[in-house]
Amino acid sequence: MTKSKNKKTRVLILGIGNVLMGDEGIGVHVVKALEKAVLPDDVEVLDGGTGSFLLLEPMQKAGRVILVDATIDGAEAGSVSRLQPRFSTDYPKTLTAHDIGLKDLLDAFYLLGEPPEVTLFAVSIPPLQDMETELSSELRPVVPKVAGLVLDEVMAA
């Protein structure tokens, strides 16, 4: 689960998505790629799946979270936006598959009084996905690109 079991996690790289739904799983594919990278000891990489409330603990513990998720916002497939949302209402409405769980989770941080600082890389995907475990040919090349953006963010953090 963690790269650094005994040290305090400073940054959590969290990929969200459902790998059974093709491009919707892009966040998980990005963290799978990053699991192979050499990262500082206090950086943790987590495949969050669609884990909703179960992600509260690792996110809260980190203080700084880099989130990668898919969005269906009508933009060209594979475009990436970098957002720094504070409240659940600041997140794209179409952050999908698990958006209600994730937004409830983000509200929960405020209720508990310890909101982590979140940077969100939202990757645009086409609407209407078939059940499929692979990424589409449009999205496959985006994985190293987003992984690179995440690494830059980690270095700057």
Partner: peptide, 15 residues
């Protein structure tokens, strides 16, 4: 319903 149905909501409706 996540397991009873597909996980996708084109409108991203909240409550």
């Amino acid at each position: 319903l996540a397991c009873a149905v597909h996980l996708y909501d084109p409108d991203g409706k909240t409550l």
